[in-house]
Design a protein around this nucleic acid. Structure first.
Lengths: 179, 179
DNA sequence: CAATAACTTGAGGCATGCCTCAATTTATAG
DNA sequence: CTATAAATTGAGGCATGCCTCAAGTTATTG
C-alpha cells in the first residue's frame, strides 16, 4: 500500500522540481529540490528513483496541461491553415514560457512517460498538418519531422539567443512551409 | 622569450583538442587531450590557461579555414540569390562536418578570438544577404540575426535529431526568407 | 493501543574532473 | 660549456554532486 504522506511528498517534490529546473536548468542539484520540498534527498530517491525519473514525473503533468490549452485554441480555428499555424505558435509560446519543459522534451528517453505524452501531442499536430496540406495551403512534401526539428531548434534559440528570435524563426519556417 | 618546444606543444594540444572535442564534446576531460598530445595537464594549463582558452585556441584556426572555403565557393556565384543560398548551405555543411566547432561558436564568450572570427565571417554573410535583398529575391525585412538564429538552431538539430533534418530546416528557412 | 509495514533521514562513500605548484628538466644565448 | 630563463611534470588538494543504507520515525490497520 501507498501511504498518504508519501504521495504528498511526491507532489511537493514535483512542484519544487518544476521551480528549480526552471531557475537553474535540468542539471540543478537534487539536494536543492529536496530541501525546497521540505524533504531529504533520500526521500526524493525513494519517490522518483533518479534525476531522470524526477524529470519525467514533474514534466509530464506540466506538458499535459499546456498541450490541452494549445489544442483547445487550435481547435477553435475553422480554417485548416490557421489551425496548423495556431499549433506552431502555441508550441513556441509554451517553449518560451517553460524552457525547462522544452529542454526535457528534447532529451526525453524513449519509453518515458514524457516521450509518450509528447507522441500523443504530436499526433494532433500531424493531423493539423495533414489538414493544411489537403487544403492546399502547405507544401505537400512537408513532414511532421519538420515540426519536430523546429521545436528542437527553438530550444537552442531560446536559451542561446532570445524568445523573439524563436518567434521569428517559427514565422519564417511557417512561411517556408506554405506553398 | 618563447621557446620553440613550447610552441610545438601548443600546436599538438590544438590538434588533440580538435580530435577529442569532436569525439566527446566540449566537456571532454582535459587530461585526455593532454595525454593524446603526449604532454601533461600542467602543460595544457601553461599554454592555454583554461578550457575556455583551449577551445578558443583550437577552434579559431578551424573556423578560419572552413570560412575561407565557404566564402570562396559563395564568391563564385554570380547571382545574388544563389550567393546567399550558397553561404547558408555551406555553413550548415560545416556545422554537420564539425559539430564541436558549431557548438563552441554558439557559446563563444564575447571578446574571445572565436567570437571575433565569427563576427568577421558574419559580415560576409550580411553582405550577401543585403545583395539578395537588393536583387529582390529575399524579403526586405530579413535580418542577419535570422541567419544567426538558424545557425544556433542547427547546432541543436544536428545533435538531437540528425544532419538531414538540419539540411531540410535550412532549405525551409531559405524558402521562407524568399519573397 | 499495539504491531508492523511504509517511509524518512542525512552523513558518508564514491566518482569525476578542475587546477596548482614545488621540484625537476630542458632549450637557448653568450 | 655554463648559466639561467623557460617549460614541463603529475601527485594531490579542492569542489561538486550522485546515490546508498542502517538507524530512526510515523501512518495505518485490526
Amino acid at each position: 500500500m501507498v501511504r498518504a504522506d508519501a504521495q504528498l511528498n511526491a507532489e511537493r517534490l514535483r512542484t519544487a522540481a518544476q521551480e528549480v529546473f526552471a531557475e537553474r536548468g535540468l542539471g540543478a542539484p537534487l539536494e536543492e529540490i529536496a530541501s525546497r520540498a521540505g524533504v531529504s534527498v533520500g526521500t526524493l530517491y525513494n519517490r522518483f528513483g533518479s534525476r531522470e525519473g524526477l524529470i519525467d514525473g514533474a514534466m509530464t503533468v506540466l506538458l499535459r496541461e499546456q498541450v490541452e490549452a494549445i489544442t483547445a485554441r487550435a481547435g477553435a480555428c475553422v480554417d485548416a491553415g490557421a489551425r496548423f499555424a495556431s499549433y506552431l505558435h502555441g508550441l513556441v509560446e509554451m517553449q518560451i514560457l517553460t524552457p525547462a519543459l522544452a529542454q526535457s522534451i528534447a532529451q526525453a528517453p524513449p519509453g518515458s512517460e514524457l516521450a509518450k505524452e509528447c507522441a500523443t501531442a504530436m499526433e494532433h499536430v500531424a493531423a493539423a498538418l495533414a489538414g493544411a496540406i489537403d487544403a492546399g495551403v502547405v507544401r505537400s512534401d512537408a513532414r511532421i519531422d519538420d515540426v519536430t526539428a523546429l521545436l528542437v531548434a527553438n530550444v537552442a534559440v531560446i536559451s542561446a539567443v532570445n524568445a523573439d528570435s524563436a518567434r521569428r524563426l517559427t514565422s519564417v519556417v511557417l512561411a517556408g512551409l506554405r506553398q
